[in-house]
Amino acid sequence: MRYLIKKACMMLFTLLVVSLCVFLAFSLIPGDPALRQLGTNGTPEQLEALRQQMGLKDPLPVRYGRWLLGLLRGDLGTSYVYKIPVGSMLAEKIPITLSLALISFVFMVLISVPLGIYTAKHKDGVLDHIVMVLNQVIMAVPPFFAGILITLVFGMILHLFTPGGFISYKKSVPGFIGYLIAPAFAVALPKAAMAVKLLRGSVIDEAAKDYTRTAYSRGNTTNGVLYRHVLQNALIPVITFLGMALADMVAGSIVIEQVFGIPGISRILLTSINNRDYPVVEAIIMGIAFLVIFINLLVDVIYRIVDPRIASGDE
């Protein structure tokens, strides 16, 4: 418990550092948001007034403080371009991107865990060889390309889904999830390939350790040794990878949303970068940073459950 509090404090501190970096980066890059908004037609007086109104005249620390306090209160600021709160702009998009990342993650786990165990158990078997070769290929294919292939084969040739026919979760949740299956697959595939390889290797390594001999000596079956003894040990290195992959998927979803025409965060992010709509970009980056750090914390907690040696190390 004490550990958790310590970890949570560190997480907050990291977020603070990230927020400072994000804020500084967007304050220091050249370009005047007020000028951009007003266009070149405005009079200097108008420009000055707008700067005043947008709070750009205040010293940096004051502006940072104001922004940070806003974030803490859940106020993500106001879009320079649309003049509406960033929060309300993102509110509808966040569930879409998160759903995509989550479904991708579930796919990755559902594919990699059984295959990793199977190929390790039947090492040098036919399926093992096939999977290992396929793995090499799939790992080399970037998700956006996998996405294009999937759209072509499953969308345009097999008509299993309608490319571009995104269905909002507000209209139909099953339809929404159904549309996300293909893109999630594209995101999950290369990561699943890596996870299969990692888990397979890990199971094989663990199966050679002394404690498995002890387990057999007590009358365990091969499956008993595998599932009751080896698996938990073998998952330890894989958990870190799965955690990183989940964090990566949030970012990876942004690319795949473009390929599949999904109106998630990616569209807003790209237009906002183009428009120099910094409050929106800042909010999205902070959101992703928060997620990555939170996932890290989660991985840490799971780690401690799976590997008791870590837990007692710092108590």
């Binding site: 000596s217 009358g219 365990n220 079956t221 003894h229």
Partner: peptide, 24 residues
């Protein structure tokens, strides 16, 4: 064979540090 292992015939090893499962 499994029916005897651990029930009628048991074995202990030279390496007590590694013979137990570390996560159980």
């Amino acid at each position: 064979l499994r029916g005897y292992q651990g029930d009628e015939i048991s074995i202990i090893f030279q390496e007590p540090m590694t013979s137990l499962n570390p996560v159980k």
